[in-house]
């Protein structure tokens, strides 16, 4: 294990992970806002998506939407 790791290298590894999670969150939020109706109140889903890290958006994609 390399003991000394530059901050920039460190960031280069973490940033893609954060960006992907952020992307997932944004897609879920946009779908949540645009959806005609969700299963349960919209503000609740918005909170779940924002606070639920990775699991929040997944839960919304799986259970939050009513198909037609």
């Amino acid at each position: 294990m390399k003991e000394t790791m530059e901050l920039s290298q460190w960031m280069g590894l973490i940033v893609p992970l954060v960006l992907l999670q952020l992307l997932l969150m944004i897609i879920a939020l946009v779908l949540c806002v645009k959806a005609e109706e969700t299963r349960g109140p919209k503000w609740m889903w918005a909170l779940i998506i924002i606070l639920g890290q990775l699991l929040g958006p997944i839960a919304f994609f799986l259970f939050g939407r009513r198909n037609q």
Binding site: P16, L20, L54, I58, F61
Partner: peptide, 16 residues
């Protein structure tokens, strides 16, 4: 249904 978008992203996040 956006499955083609979110499922691969979730797998990549899990993998990283």
């Amino acid at each position: 249904s956006f499955k083609l978008v979110w499922v691969p992203i979730v797998f990549v996040v899990l993998g990283i």
